[in-house]
Design a protein around this nucleic acid. Structure first.
Lengths: 191, 191
DNA sequence: GGCGATATACTCAAAACTGAGTATTCAAAC
DNA sequence: GTTTGAATACTCAGTTTTGAGTATATCGCC
């Protein structure tokens, strides 16, 4: 299922009927900065959208090319698109942040090593921001909102890493030997 | 696989050996604000971690309780935990933002409706921030970094929605009839 | 005219994930 | 004493997702 991927495919097919390969090329080349959709998954979803009646496929035989299927949206699909779009725009679902898992256990590493790792991450974030910023320059206005969104989140991420780095630096054992005691987080045991 | 979930389970089992139910209770109750891990997925992952030798299970038979399996981490698991933690901390992988999909097609809705939807979303974000802020008050210091992280991203999200709302408001057709023409995004056709 | 590289267009088996269901114990209400 | 509801502890069939593989056509170059 996955609402968002369905929305994406329906939205693209709505703008223009396509065959699977063309759809995949478009996503991979134009949308790779915000969407990660494997080709095999796209084919699977197209098939499912067909089975569910939201798109239809037509086998196309042109000259001696290998035959291919052209997908186009159906009226039911158009309705679903509108519904999904409305839902997507009005709902807020906080994404799952993998970095949250790491940060829960971060204090179990020696502070010096943790700091080194966080600096590496900081560099990675900066590199990523550079890459996204470049995109911003030459994209149609319809895409700038998406980039904008990414950049804001990247800034948030950066602020956060910087805070953490500052905090962990302050806790580094100094020459006078004062340091915070690391504690293993306790799991509530109800027995 | 999913690095992050493995890291989570290993990290929790490392702090304390547990049986599946206890692990699930802990995740659902203490970590629901940042982790969404279905119970069935947890059992699946525990089983896989066993098969791969990172944890071991021991069947426990206590009185006339239904029997249950206690999982504890192995030395290989400990190594994996350390590796995954280092990786998680040093790498930056931009998460997939479902809202990006909606925003690509947003301009295909009538501006007035779009604005209404965005306002609904704005409310949802505010509610969520309220909920997370409350958590901040009574949590151990080991968790505040995670909450901090969430709040920063929520602020980013809020800034973004506000920008979009402002922009779309400006484009609303006014009494004098001036309005921007909506364009369906073009798909590059290489044929 | 043949050879490798690239583009086209998927297929499939295996892995990962989920929702719904199963089964037992215990405590409290009726 | 028995029904009801919550807590304990998973299982499993089905769905979704993926990486690796398959197969043909076309293009340029030697």
């Amino acid at each position: 299922m996955s609402m968002d991927r369905q929305l994406l495919l329906l939205g693209l097919l709505r703008a223009q009927e396509m065959h699977g390969y063309q759809l995949n090329e478009f996503i991979d080349q134009q949308m790779n900065f915000c969407v990660d959709l494997k080709r095999s998954t796209a084919y699977y979803l197209l098939d499912k959208l067909c089975r569910d009646g939201y798109v239809e496929e037509e086998v196309e035989r042109e000259g001696n090319r290998p035959e291919r299927k052209v997908y186009h949206i159906t009226p039911t699909g158009e309705t679903l698109f509108q519904d999904l779009l409305r839902q997507n725009l009005s709902v807020y679902a906080p994404p799952f942040y993998p970095e949250d898992i790491g940060i829960i256990f971060e204090h179990q590493l020696p502070p010096a090593e943790s700091l080194a790792l966080l600096h590496t991450r900081r560099e990675a974030i900066l590199r990523h921001r550079e890459r996204v910023s470049v995109l911003y320059q030459h994209l149609p206005p319809s895409h700038t909102a998406v980039i904008d969104h990414h950049i804001l989140h990247l800034e948030a991420e950066l602020t956060w890493v910087d805070r953490l780095i500052a905090d962990r630096s302050a806790r580094l054992p100094t020459a006078d030997g004062a340091s915070a005691a690391p504690a293993i987080p306790c799991v509530a045991d109800s027995e």
